[in-house]
Design a protein around this nucleic acid. Structure first.
Lengths: 149, 149
DNA sequence: CTCATTTAGTTGCAGATGCAACTAAATAAA
DNA sequence: TTTATTTAGTTGCATCTGCAACTAAATGAG
């Protein structure tokens, strides 16, 4: 199947990837400038907190954060080294870990959000109308609905 | 300035980055499966061919491809090692070099496009209407219009 | 129960990235 | 002309990513 992409499709494709790169660069550099950890850390910590204190299995975390398991494994190493996260043995499954966020982890999250949120708003949110943001999500959802969705 | 991002903004932000990641993964894996080089190579080769045979300075290439100069320098190393590109001394500027695509480079480009184009169309283009693609570009342009242009 | 298969997670290695320091040529200032 | 500053590009180092190979526990078949 699958004919050749139209000119409009190609343009949108390029714009999508350029926007991603630009926005990410800005957000990362804002965090770095504030002496804060990179975005991946934020994503993981956020998912952990969102889950309450009950802890998440590593593979669950991986699904939510879209990180492959080897990378996640090492990211958690780094987080653990910085005391933002704790690995605990899992009762039901002897192979697995339960990852739990620490107090320091929650505080890090809280120090990161203002900087991250500002970056999102100034580079992205403030440039779109409410309706455009919604429309963007709607259109992207059509793309995201392919098994990774 | 810069208030906190709205819920809609946050959602669109997440969707944008997820879409980027999903699409890129698909395209890269399609290329890899076909035994072809990664996307970065395509981008560079494409810009070089687009320019005709006249050759591009490294910094010009960097601007178009959105790659930092050190990374570009090493990417060109790899391309040169595979004979897809040639570095030539630059007449007007003794520090610089002129990057020129080789015949093998052009052939690589031609072998990559069917695979890449198919990936774009099947994971992206086919899921949007023509109008949605245009709307996507229009909205993203508002984001891209910040000095990174 | 025993053995094969699947699943969770880790590790080694190669390739890629960001950062800072570097070389060398070009430009501007004295 | 001499010296200082900027610009083009490269390199070393630390970090990060992907892939494949690995360990170990869980599940399923005989």
């Amino acid at each position: 199947m699958s004919r050749k992409p139209s000119r409009q499709t190609r343009q949108a494709w390029i714009d999508l990837h350029r926007a991603h790169r630009l926005l990410l660069e800005r957000a990362e550099s804002a965090l770095k400038q504030a002496g804060l950890p990179p975005l991946d850390w934020y994503d993981v910590l956020l998912e952990l907190r969102r889950d309450g204190g009950s802890g998440l299995r590593q593979y669950q975390l991986g699904e939510r954060v879209l990180l492959s398991k080897h990378n996640l494994s090492r990211l958690i190493d780094r987080l653990e080294q910085n005391d933002l996260v704790r690995r605990e043995a899992c009762a039901e499954d002897g192979r697995g870990n339960l990852i739990r966020i620490t107090g320091a982890g929650e505080r890090t999250l809280e120090r990161m959000w203002p900087v991250y949120g500002d970056a999102i708003e100034s580079t992205f949110g403030a440039r779109l109308t409410r309706g455009e943001a919604v429309e963007l999500s709607r259109v992207l959802a059509k793309v995201l609905d392919q098994d990774g969705g």
